[in-house]
Computed example of a mutant assay.
Amino acid sequence: MAGVGLLVLLIASGVTTSLDNALYDLHARLWRYTPDNNVVIVAIDLKSLDAIGRFPWPRSVYAQLIDRLTADGVRGIGMDVTMSTPSNDARNDALVASAIQRNGKVVLPVFAEAVHLGGQLQEALPISAIAQSVAALGQVDVATDADGRVRGAYLKAGLGSAYWPSLALALIQLGTTPSAALPGMHDPARNDTSPYLWMRDNYVLLRYAGTAGSFGSVSSADVLDGNVPAQMLKGRWVLIGATAEGLGDILQTPDSPMPGVEYQANVLESLQRGYLVTPINFLAQFLLAAALLTLPLLLYGLPVIGRRAPLLLATLALVLATCIGLLRACYLWWPPTACLAVIAVECAAWQWLMRERHR
């Protein structure tokens, strides 16, 4: 009973979260995969900045880029580039809107921002002339943990309620009926909505393909100049976004700094291949951990283990095996360190009690 009480305190307080994150990161480095080359990044890189000019670019440049990708027969385009304010030349807005409409499979980003410091949040949508031409809109909210690292993503988010799909999910859903059953842990407060709060739902952990540079990437300048063979782009998802460090769109993943557009590529690839990991909720964490707390009692009577250190080692090994087994086989993440800590404390307390009783 004391162990169960301690377990509740550890899980509810989040004291062991950093250890759980470290364990997940360690396992993720050994659980990478090779992308299928279905996702290509069209990078706003240093080469493009040198060729086209300083950022932000005129929207006529994006119009040319989209038309080139349309001619190459891409499957769909996700733009990690905001167009929430009118440009200085309205003709450029009209050009990019026409290019988006000609393609018919372009997704633009939505995000939340405060107009004034500390002010009320508002959704930053593309301007009306452009928004009317897109196939879909997708939110680009980044799930940053307390230590500043990005391990997961929210598949749904929005102001008041989580109704916007993520940019990657919006791309996947183009031309299909959205599935009601999405992976991810639900926000317990999702029904207590407020029109002034940015709500998130369907939180998933990412199985990163690797460090930055794991996905195929071509320079925007090369695409505009026609230097990229059409077969490299035909039938593939294309994500347009900044990779140059000076543009500020760099996220800190557990392995390395990564451009935001490559983070979106990881979400897109994981969605396609079913590699998204769902963290289990508090109740499931507690019930599984409480069940595993009985392991020392079940193993205690075995003649091989007896009252020696193998009891503790065998129990800890079984707990870790349960964690890794759920992750690998079911894509479910159960944080094990609270359970490991309680079992270690229980074993130490039992040994102390036995010594006191013998004395």
Score class of each variant (00 low, 15 high):
Thr315Phe: 02
Pro296Phe: 06
Leu313Ser: 13
Leu295Ala: 09
Gln285Met: 08
Leu302Arg: 09
Ile324Asn: 04
Ala291Ser: 15
Ala290Ser: 12
Thr294Trp: 11
Leu299Arg: 03
Ala321His: 04
Leu297Ile: 15
Thr294Cys: 11
Arg328Thr: 14
Leu288Pro: 00
Leu318Lys: 03
Trp334Asn: 00
Ala289Pro: 00
Leu327Thr: 00
Ala321Cys: 08
Leu299Ala: 04
Pro279Ser: 10
Leu287Glu: 10
Leu313Met: 15
Thr322Asn: 02
Glu269Val: 11
Asn281Glu: 12
Trp334Met: 00
Tyr300Ile: 08
Leu299Glu: 01
Gln285Ile: 00
Gly325Tyr: 03
Gly274His: 09
Leu326Gln: 03
Leu288Ala: 11
Leu283Tyr: 10
Ala314Cys: 15
Pro310Asp: 08
Pro296His: 07
Leu292Phe: 12
Leu312Asn: 02
Arg273Cys: 11
Ile305Asp: 03
Ile280Glu: 00
Arg273Gly: 14
Arg328Leu: 09
Arg328Cys: 07
Pro303Met: 09
Cys330Glu: 15
Ala309Asn: 12
Leu318Ser: 04
Gln285Arg: 09
Ile280Leu: 09
Arg273Pro: 08
Asn281Asp: 15
Ile305Arg: 06
Leu312Trp: 04
Gln272Asp: 09
Leu268Gln: 02
Leu316Cys: 12
Val277Glu: 01
Leu299Thr: 03
Ala309Trp: 13
Ala289Gly: 06
Pro303Ala: 13
Gln272Cys: 08
Thr322Met: 05
Thr294Asp: 14
Val304Pro: 06
Ala284His: 09
Tyr275Met: 13
Leu316Ala: 11
Leu298Met: 10
Leu316Asn: 10
Ala309Leu: 15
Trp334Leu: 03
Ala314Arg: 05
Leu318Ala: 15
Gly325His: 06
Leu288Phe: 07
Leu293Pro: 04
Gln272His: 13
Leu293Tyr: 07
Trp334Ala: 00
Leu283Phe: 13
Ile324Gln: 07
Ala290Thr: 05
Leu302Thr: 11
Leu313Gln: 12
Leu316Asp: 04
Trp333Ser: 00
Ala317Thr: 13
Pro279Val: 03
Leu298Asn: 08
Gln285Tyr: 01
